[in-house]
């Protein structure tokens, strides 16, 4: 029993990891005829192809990175007060508000975006960066609010009270006590929101109309097209950018709080 359940877990982990092995193999494969288990030759074809178009890709990565960072920042700024209201206050209609905030996770965001598109055209937001940011913000808000609400609940409001009775003003309490204690939650929320925004394809395409070229938009045809070498390289770079963002956030949070490791995703 013990053996089989462990074997099952190992198998599950193997199935989880196998695709990544495939990704690595294909990114470095040259000749790999069917049905050989490993590539016959090593080649950097995918990487050189990427290097040849590096300028185009880097531009998209920078666009995406800035866009998603801005969305993350905005999302945290808007989510934090709402999360605070949900975590620390009791009020009539709280349930309704909570369901309302969660509803984008349960409703077709793409359909809403298609509908909103017409209004965005009228307002001059279609095909622009602010328009894309706004629709990203909309799809990211539930993640920000839910994660921060749970983080605030876990921290509790008593620390702020304790700081205040010791003479800390509201801002001092926030800066010296609440934010450091909330840091893991802030990192978790930023990571999640960034991933959602950075990975977004269809909303960017609908509202950006192809004018705002994010990294997702750029690699979409390659993933569809089928050259496994190039697709593998692009996928690896995609994942690396996300990992880099997580790393940067963790380091920032660690420097700010001066302790601990979170590895929050």
């Amino acid at each position: 029993m013990k053996f089989w359940s462990k074997a099952f877990l190992v198998l599950a982990l193997a199935l989880l990891a196998l695709p990544f092995a495939g990704l690595l193999l294909w990114s470095l494969a040259g000749e790999w005829p069917w049905p050989q288990l490993v590539p016959a030759t090593v080649s950097f074809r995918g990487w050189t192809a990427f290097a040849a178009m590096a300028e185009k890709f880097l531009e998209a990565i920078v666009t995406s990175g800035l866009l998603s960072s801005a969305v993350t920042l905005l999302c945290l700024l808007v989510s934090l007060p709402a999360a605070r209201a949900l975590a620390y206050y009791q009020f009539a209609g709280k349930r309704l508000i909570e369901i309302f905030f969660i509803s984008p996770l349960l409703a077709p965001v793409m359909s809403i975006a298609m509908g909103v598109h017409m209004q965005f055209i009228r307002l001059g937001l279609a095909d622009t960066l602010p328009g894309v940011m706004l629709i990203h913000l909309f799809s990211c808000l539930p993640y920000g609010i839910l994660i921060l609400r749970d983080a605030l609940l876990a921290v509790g409001s008593q620390w702020e009270d304790q700081a205040k009775v010791l003479g800390a003003s509201r801002w001092q309490a926030a800066r010296y006590i609440v934010l450091p204690l909330l840091a893991p939650g802030l990192v978790a929320a930023s990571v999640m929101v960034f991933i959602v925004s950075f990975s977004e394809y269809i909303l960017t395409f609908i509202i950006g109309g192809g004018k705002i070229v994010t990294f997702s938009l750029l690699i979409f045809p390659y993933l569809q097209g089928g050259d496994r070498n190039i697709s593998s390289v692009l996928s690896i770079i995609f994942l690396l950018v996300i990992l880099l963002w997580i790393l940067v956030l963790e380091l920032l949070a660690r420097r700010y709080t001066g302790q601990g490791r979170f590895f929050h995703l």
């Binding site: 809403i112 509908g115 706004l134």
Partner: peptide
Amino acid sequence: LLLLPATLIQLWIMFTGIFSSI
């Protein structure tokens, strides 16, 4: 005040999205 920003953004986009779709 705490709920206002998030609610406004979400309500506006949802409402216009749904209304315009219909």
